[in-house]
Design a protein around this nucleic acid. Structure first.
Lengths: 344, 344
DNA sequence: GCTTAGCACTCCAGGCGCGAGAGTGCTAAG
DNA sequence: CTTAGCACTCTCGCGCCTGGAGTGCTAAGC
């Protein structure tokens, strides 16, 4: 892979990303003056094809990057774009509004991200299990019910209405809550759900029902069944792409969007390295219905604590340089804002 | 419009709904033995066309119902379907689970509804403004912040983290909260947001900031900007319909789905009569991008209080009889379950 | 007077052939 | 090693044609 081949591959990928048309030797020679004739480029392209970086839809069409070609481009050739101040303005507006609750903040970020990129955004909201315990409050309602309020260190609030255990005086419950508040302060909620609550069962045998409700709130609040964890924004954007002319393809993809849990697992699985923006191209994606797509994703976190993930889904022919820059920027700003909002 | 014409129109609409193909005189004569020959039916169909109930895509194709034809069918001809016990089972499972919070219940209902009908469901969640005040609680956090918890009579919980007004002792705030709890109990939240809070400003001049936050929670919690109010389910279902082969049409429709506020207003506007299931056919819909669709919608409510709306969006060639029955049933069951959960 | 058989007519869908255009690979010369 | 020239290949769009479905009209029948 000499320098000239790299230049040609880069030109080819970038032209294809822009035009969505197979790129011929002529076009490369003309648009990116590499100082060589189309014939030379043809030879090089034949080599690139043999190496698996480009493909021909059929003889006598230009070349199209293969997944491997995109991979090489992303890893070695592209210059990550830095979003301009103008583009960032809507993002700043969203992230600057301190009156908006955390969950709404995340959702709006998803919306802005899809608008900035003109692709579809997938955002996994803050997962309760990944947060820390801040405080707990129990409010009696109607005599026979309790409103349980759980607050995390990242400012996330989870509430639930539960039946009040019969025959247990309010003082007992209040004592229990204040003991728990003392014992759990700053703990990981995941640890609270396992070790913490088990220990509390011993000290407060009459409050077992309430403890179980609390466990349910923590476990369901982050995971699977409970809603509001995944936000999908700008689904219609992806339909602007010429590769999505096929209704059947669209339908398969949209079915995936409806399976929140699947997407959540997907993003979780991919983001092994919390520091990086991860690009997943075509078949690299474990979900077969997304093999025509690429995903650019990153984790956001607060004080080293991973909270959730943001991602952009577009066609394989995605403007990687631009999108990677934006995802990185959004991750940064979101993390900052959440850091600003942290509670102790 | 004699009886025979009605029978023919009914047969035509039902055949077309089933096959999505223009219906010819032969087909009607064969499949619905009305005891007359195709030629007679042809004459009648020509009349129906003149009356505006059916249309011809082109000479020498069969007929297709017009919007007016569907309207007549829905108003006078269809026999509303009663969902079978088997179909209802997933719905019962969702509505029977008392541990699920109200908002999640609504969202799941949207999911089930779209699955039952195989169309797309639009559900407007319970709007805070439409609910009644149950109780309010304020929990100090970190010394300089307050967690405000608002509970409605329908079991809906709204929370927000706000700055604590400086220099105001906790006792003052607690006194204020308990005074508000007494004054607002059972009141409409809309009334609380306007009259109630204004009056409270006079009594508690040092708590004005908190009162404003409360107003914000009520107003934003139901309306526009605040999220989680509209649930769209089964978007991919509508893509199964042959009328949605055109990607551009799909894109326009999906753009509408992303405009929560628009849909919310739409459903609100249509459901003038809270007792009825309303069918909106094609051009009757005020949103131009939905002119190819029909919408079956109904309000759900608790103890006479309207809470929100459910709707099913499908092609104009929708299985109205079935869908109307299902929407009606879901509305009923959802209302019942919410009634069971009411607080006081 | 309503119904129906017969028939000519219309129009769409789909298959076929053809030519233009784009881009290639190969060859031979620089 | 590079490049001009050229033959070759493949797609795409166009017009043409044909089969089929369904109609409207007319005239005969009940």
């Amino acid at each position: 892979m000499d320098e000239r081949k790299r230049r040609i591959l880069q030109a080819l990928v970038e032209d294809y990303i822009e035009t969505a048309q197979p790129v011929g030797s002529r076009a490369i020679a003309r648009r990116h003056g590499l100082g060589v004739s189309p014939a030379t480029i043809r030879n090089e392209m034949a080599d690139l094809e043999e190496m698996g970086f480009v493909e021909q839809p059929h003889t006598s069409a230009g070349r199209v990057p293969s997944s491997r070609g995109y991979r090489y481009y992303v890893d070695h050739l592209m210059a990550v774009g830095i979003p301009g101040e103008r583009e960032l303005e809507p993002l700043r507006r969203v992230c600057g509004d301190r009156t908006v609750p955390v969950r709404a903040l995340i959702r709006r970020t998803a919306g802005v991200l899809s608008q900035m990129t003109q692709y579809t955004s997938l955002v996994v909201g803050p997962q309760l299990e990944k947060a820390t315990f801040k405080c707990l409050e129990v409010i009696p309602v109607n005599g026979n019910r309790l409103l349980v309020v759980l607050l995390t260190g990242s400012g996330l609030i989870q509430t639930r209405l539960v039946d009040r255990p019969e025959g247990v005086p309010l003082e007992y419950l209040e004592g229990m809550v204040s003991a728990l508040n003392g014992a759990f302060a700053g703990m990981d909620l995941a640890a609270v759900a396992t070790r913490g609550l088990d220990r509390a069962r011993v000290d407060f045998p009459r409050g077992v029902g309430l403890l179980e409700s609390l466990r349910g709130m923590i476990e369901l609040g982050g995971a699977q069944e409970e809603e509001d964890v995944l936000f999908v924004g700008g689904t219609s954007n992806i339909l602007k792409q010429p590769e999505f002319r096929d209704v059947d393809k669209i339908r398969r993809l949209f079915s995936v969007f409806e399976r929140q849990q699947l997407i959540q697992e997907l993003l979780t699985e991919l983001n092994v390295d919390p520091e990086d923006v991860v690009v997943t191209i075509g078949e690299e994606n474990p979900c077969p219905d997304m093999h025509d797509c690429s995903l650019v994703s990153a984790a956001y976190y607060v004080g080293g604590k991973l909270l959730g993930r943001i991602g952009i889904l577009g066609p394989r022919r995605m403007r990687y340089a631009r999108v990677v820059g934006m995802v990185s920027m959004v991750r940064e700003m979101l993390s900052q804002e959440l850091w600003r909002r942290r509670l102790g």
